[in-house]
Simulated assay, not measured.
Amino acid sequence: MTARIAPVSQPYPEFAQEPLARLSSPEGDPLVLFTTLATDRRLFERFFGGGLLDRGQLTLRQREIVIDRVTARCGSEYEWGVHVSVFAEKAGLTREQIVSTHAGGPEDGCWSAEESCLVRLVDRIDAGCRLDDADWSDGLRYFTPQAVLEILMLCGYYRTVSYVTGGLDLPLEPWAARFAQYGTS
């Protein structure tokens, strides 16, 4: 499969060299997503300026549940697979939970009450681009208002990433997880 925009190759543009070196894949090469974004300096810099992988209001585990769920709902096997491969073990996600992010739901028995709420919030945000009063109150049982804001922003950011990976038809990273590996297609 060939992406719709050819990614940059080495030598990388000067503006992208340091970020690409810092963010290499498990195989040592930068992600195709990143090298494709490096074809446009402004978009590359804006993308990295908007990232939410730093320490925020959510734990690593909570953040990854949000990212895995929203990218799976958007059908972005590329981004879901990258996050499952790089972060799922660090976040302590079980195989059953990984499957649930793609093919299950908040009612699955693998989630704690808090995590079930988190998955439900992601589903509501993704389905309607909003939270109603009941959803907001449900979220506040487990999360601060700032954490719910971060959930909203993560959903939006990774929906955008899903649009980019799908719209550009990026080839899957060879080392990344696949939906089919987790009993889904």
Rank of each mutant, 00 (worst) to 15 (best):
E45V: 10
R178C: 02
A134T: 02
D126I: 08
G167V: 00
G139R: 07
W136K: 01
G139W: 04
V66F: 03
S25H: 03
V161K: 02
V8I: 15
E173R: 07
P11Q: 07
A21L: 00
G104K: 07
I151K: 02
I5K: 01
V119C: 11
E173V: 02
Q57W: 09
A16K: 10
R159H: 07
V86S: 00
F143S: 03
M153S: 12
A16M: 04
A21E: 03
L20P: 00
C110F: 06
V148E: 09
V84W: 01
P171Q: 05
L43A: 12
Q17E: 12
L43C: 09
T144N: 09
S116Y: 09
A177L: 13
S24E: 15
W136R: 04
L168G: 02
R120I: 14
R73N: 12
E96G: 04
D169F: 05
V8N: 05
T184C: 14
A127R: 13
R130L: 07
D126T: 12
I5A: 00
R124A: 15
T35M: 02
A103Y: 00
A103R: 12
I67R: 02
Y157L: 09
V70I: 15
L60V: 07
E18G: 02
A134H: 06
C129Y: 15
I125A: 10
M1P: 07
R141C: 12
G105E: 04
T71F: 03
A103Q: 13
R95V: 14
E79Y: 07
L149H: 09
A180L: 00
E18S: 09
D123H: 12
I98V: 14
G139Q: 04
V148G: 01
L93N: 07
L152Y: 08
L23M: 15
I98H: 13
P174D: 06
L58A: 04
S9A: 15
L31P: 04
V8D: 00
